[in-house]
Each structure stands twice: as C-alpha cells, then as structure tokens.
Amino acid sequence: MFDLQMVDWARAQFALTAMYHWLFVPLTLGLSFLCAFFETIYVRTGREEWKNLTRFWMTLFGINFAIGVATGIILEFEFGTNWSNYSWMVGDIFGAPLAIEGIVAFFLEATFFAVMFFGWDRVSKNFHLFSTWMVAIGSNLSALWILVANGWMQYPIGMAFNPDTVRFEMENFWAVLFSPVALAKFTHTTSSSFIVGSFFVIAVSSWYLLKGRHIEMAKKSIIVASVFGLLSATYAAWTGDESAYSNASTQPMKLAAYEGLYDGEKNAGIVALGVVNPAKQPGDQQQPFLFEIKIPGLLSLLANRELGSFVPGINDLVYGNEQEGITSVAARMEKGREAISDLAAYKTAKRAGDATAAEISLARFNTNRDSLGYGYLESPEQTVPSVAITFYAFHIMVFFGTFFLLLFLLFLIFSVKDTLAGKRGLLMLGVGSFFLAMIASQSGWVVAEVGRQPWAIQGLLPVNVATTDIGTGSVQATFFMFLAVFTLLLAAEIKIMLKQIKIGPEGL
C-alpha cells in the first residue's frame, strides 16, 4: 500500500526545502534585532552616521527576508502534497500553530516590514523605530509558532485520539503552546539564530576593516554584534543543555544516538571526541567507537541532573531492560498490531450497527492505544536513527558553539580597545565565522530531525505511514525542480547581497 521509496523522496524533498529555508531564516531572526538596536541608538543620539549604518544593515536584511518567505511557503505546501496522511491524522493540532503563525505573526512582520523599508521619510522617527521592533518581534513570534508545531511532533501532548475519524484532536491548546520541548526548542533555536545574525554583521564588518573601507561603521557594528553574540552564545549553551535534558525524558533514543550510547549504564560518560564504528549494529558485540575520548559520569549528570544515575542506551530501548522498567520495541509492536486490528474491528462493527461488538473492540483498542504507531513498524531496529549522522552533527554543533563564545569575546575585547584593525588573522576568521555559524545551525536541525527517525510524530506515527499515496516519480521530479529553483534563488541572493556590500552604506 505504501511505497517506501516515496517516503525517502518525500523526506529528501522536505529536508532540502527545510535546509534551504534555514539558510535565510536565522539571518532574519538575528539581524532583525540588530537592526532594532542600531535604529534605537540612532533615535537616541540623532546622529546621521547611525541612521546610515541602520539603513545599510536593513537593506541586507530585506534582501534576505524575501527569499526566506519564498522557501517557507513551499514547506507548508509539502505537508499537503507529500504528507497528506500526516496532515489528515494530526491536522487539527498541527494546523493550529501554523495558522496562527500565518495570520498573527507573519502578517505583523509583513505589515511593519513595509513601514520599516519604505517609511523612512513618510512616518515619524519614533513610529519607524516602533515598526522595526515589530518586525523583529513578529519574525521571532513566527519562529515561536513554527517551533511549537515542531515541538509537538517531538513530544505530542494536549490531544486525544478519535477512533471514529482516526484523527488526533486537540484537547488542551495551552499544553501544546507551553510544552517544555517547544519552549526549549524556541529559546535554543532563536538564540542560535542571534549568533548567526551577529556573525553576519561581524563577517561583513571584518571584510570592510581588511579592505580599509567604512572603518568607523564597521567598528561600531562589531561592538554591538559581539555583545549580542556573546550573550546569545551563553544563553544558547544553557538552552541547549535544557534541550538535551528534555530529550532524556521525551526522546531517550535520540539522546542515546547522538551520544553514541549503545549499552545503558549508571554513571554514564560523554564521548567528547570520537570516531563512530560504521559496522556497529544494535545488539551486536562490536565496539561503538573506533576511537574515543570520554568524560566519565557527565552524561548521567546532564541527562538526569543526578550523578551516577542510569542513562538508557540504544540496546536497552530496542530490546528492553526489565530492571529499569523499559519495555522492548517488539512487545510494543505486538500491542500496536493488536490496536490496529481492534480499531478495524470497531469500525466494522460500527458500520454494521453492532453496538455491543463495537464497544468491546473499542475497549480492547484503548488498552493498546498508546502503542498504535508501533504496529506499523517492520522491525524493532527500525526505531534506531543513524548514530553516525546524529553523533557527528551534535558534536559539530557543540564544538562550534563553544568556540563561538571565545570568538565573540575576542571581538568584543579588541573592538572596545580599538585594536581590531591590526589583527588581520582574527578579521579573516571573522569573515569565515558566518559560514561556521551556518554549519553549526544546520547541524542542530540535523540532530533534531534525523534523531527522531523513524517517527513523523514521536511514538505515534512512523514516517512510512505519514506520506501521500502517490507515485515516486512526481516527488522525484519536484525534488530536482526545487533543487534548481532554490539554488537559483540562493545564487541570486548572494549576488545581490555581495553587490550591496561592495557598494557599502554610502550608496544608499
């Protein structure tokens, strides 16, 4: 009934669109607040140089904003075209935050975006400043609603299953909105975007300092960006820890995968640096790492906030661990299959008008309802995401995140001392820093999304039953079409952006 290849192409297409979208969004989220800071300083000081500086960064913000919107709209359509079973089953819940994002947050930012861009000489200074802040707040509110939707996929709460419609229906909107996973995701994702935005400003300004152009503007921009970046990197470290802590209770398999932990243990350590053994499979006797540097006991502390506590590994989660009260996937698959057949029996009895049989089937279904999604799995090992991809992506993100703290600090110290212009090595690193920040930011999403495979919705709906029942060919065709269109859009953005950077603030 379901074509597995279709799943692969649908996932590839969504990943392609999401990763392209994520080239533009973090810059929007971070640069919007930096523009608000710059303009607030202009309004406070009344100095024209701050106005020119603000308009320059705002122009680059505008170029980026437009393409971010284009890729985001395509993502929403893919839920309908490629993931219609998913949309059918959870549209009641998942659709709500997406609709609020469009109607409230996006309209807010789009309305004030026009004032911010075209209103410099048409509205008062204070109203223009208000508009700029509204664009920044609106953009980040957009991110909030999208991340609430994503957080719900990672940790589905606040809903009930309706056996008559075979749909999940929302019961508690506030539980969905204030889900601990959603909020950890929002705070971590936006603060990492502030890092990306700050490094963008530092990269362009460093290039100006290397070229000896617009020196005063570049120095001022770097001071503000390095303060924002330093505080954001500190905050992102805290929220990242919160995200991992919530993974331990809501997605233990994801945590085990990105830590490369196969056999659960008390006083579990963290592999700070390692080379994953590509031949290692769940349940076998091979070593998980070809090489590793381990910090003893740290994972137990970070995952459970308790030294010496037990952290389940991949094998515990797949094959069960009676001592720790972990049910095996095989047992849950058995219950899931019973739930599927009881649900079918319930619907048959309902259609036949046999109320007694329907009631019995429904009662039996309800005992195994929580394992329904497991009934669609083909093997217990299917619940293990790619350990290599998640392990490397997670460690790249953490390594760069730590490195960024130091880099922001160096830029702040030398820019305040006004000795930055002579440090060519640091400035060259500054130019490259934006690309490193992009890699770290994309890696974070790889951890989040690859780490929850095979689930479209954690524990409820595997990806292979979430797709639309259409041929692989059409998804393949649109995959390559999108690849070409997005690459053209990206090339266009880079070309326009570089042209504007070469012109500099004087050309405005």
């Binding site: 204030f178 705070t187 936006t190 603060s191 001071i223 924002f228 505080l231 919160e242 820019s415 305040v416």
Partner: peptide, 30 residues
C-alpha cells in the same frame, strides 16, 4: 523553568541592547 527560559529570552534582548550602548560609550563610539 518555563518562566525562567522565557524571562531569560526577553532579558537577553534588553541586556544586549544596554550592554552594547555601554560598550560603545566605553569605546567612545556611541
């Protein structure tokens, strides 16, 4: 923790602005 995370987020924005201004003043570039 929810209030702490969200409060921290709002504080991050405003403290960043305030600290930027004081650093600009310290560097004589405000």
């Amino acid at each position: 923790m929810t209030a702490l995370l969200l409060g921290g987020w709002v504080a991050l924005i405003f403290v960043s602005y305030r600290l930027s201004v004081s650093m600009l003043k310290k560097a004589g570039k405000f």
